[in-house]
Amino acid sequence: MSLNFLAGFNIMRVFNGLGAACLSAGLLLVGCNSTSHSYLLKENAIINKALDKAALEIVMDDDNFLSVSAQHNPGARAAMSQSISTAFQSVPPTPGAGPGEMAAAYVIATYMIKAQADSSMHSAASNRALPLFELLKQEQNKGRPEAIIRGHLLSMKFIQIGELNTATGCCELKVVVRPQVQLSNDLSTLEVKVDYTVSDTTAGEVVYKNSFIYLTDPAQQERGIDHWTNNSAKEFFGALDLALREIVKMIDFEFMPNERGEHKPKVATIKYQNKAGSFYERGSLLWTVNRRITLRDLRGNLRSFHGDLL
């Protein structure tokens, strides 16, 4: 990739000319990717209505229901960083370029190469996962994933799903569920994530919003995509089923009146290890069963993953 187009791009001259405007631009550039997580838990409002029936809406984005992570594999990520560094170093500095120009050129070059590298890593991983995408498409046409998800959500204990027809007066609460599955870059694990939003239909406001995440135990990598696709994607749907069963447990825990309020587990650094090594995660440990750890992370999300506490 040629970066010679950056030569002669005198960004500092532009900056000097614009004066105060550039400062604002800098602030904007830095602040533009700000995100905030609304972890809403209006306890009274929701507990009082929790035993009422709620309308359920499952938002299935069939095209993006399954995706592949581009950044999971640390080895590939390190190689990408190396290629960025090499590419940048190969660009000769513009004669007379000041530090500001070099900095701007570096930022632009880095983002461009990073975007390209991310894209190619993602394409490579997605190509390997194509058989699973194709199999899943066939099953989606039959409505299988949605049926599995709906089946599990109907078994929730503390928010009961009622008739979907709001015209008949049901319901005071509306539950909107967005399920997503992400296959790790090395094809070894699935991350099943359910974005869960509860709205008060009378007031028309969101009273609870959170994500429930289940990371499968790592599969043997040498089996590759076959692990997930063999026997009509038996392992894939098995993992999805197991994940949703656990996610419903997490949702039930979240809405179980006795478990909330004064007895909230303390936030601490949780130490655990699994096949991939030792890790630290800040959050509240909720429970550990069958070498699986369930915690509430600092974003408020409930997450379940494989590991032994240290």
């Binding site: 990717n33 995100t35 650094t269 890790f279 630290y280 995660e281 800040r282 992370d297 600092l298 974003r299």
Partner: peptide
């Protein structure tokens, strides 16, 4: 994930405590 998540910056905060333990 994203780093710029005011007011509690959960991603960076998690990284901080992981670095402390390490």
């Amino acid at each position: 994930g994203e780093w710029d998540e005011p007011p509690t910056f959960p991603g960076l905060t998690n990284g901080f405590y992981a670095a402390l333990e390490a």
